[in-house]
Amino acid sequence: MQKNYWRSNLKILSILLSIWFIVSFGFGIIWSDSLDQLQIGGFKLGFWFAQQGSIYFFVILIFIYIYLMNRLDKKYKDKSEEKL
């Protein structure tokens, strides 16, 4: 029971942390100069990710995490109550 919970947790973590890495280290740093070729409004895209976009993604990621974990908690709580 607890093993499954932990495994689902690790899966959620690895997906969200991959996105975390891509939007900040990826778009903001490693591929930033190539993204700068694209310009949206006054922003070069790589510059926007480095100074704005990554921050917004961070906020969204935490709230997705909160949502998924609450759902997971509920699922396992219900199951353990059924067993009783």
Partner: peptide
Amino acid sequence: GKDGSVYLMGWTGGYVLLALLLAP
């Protein structure tokens, strides 16, 4: 200029790690 992004990403991105890996 753009080099200053390290502070913006560094000092906010740490909260994702904190929320997902440590705080709970």
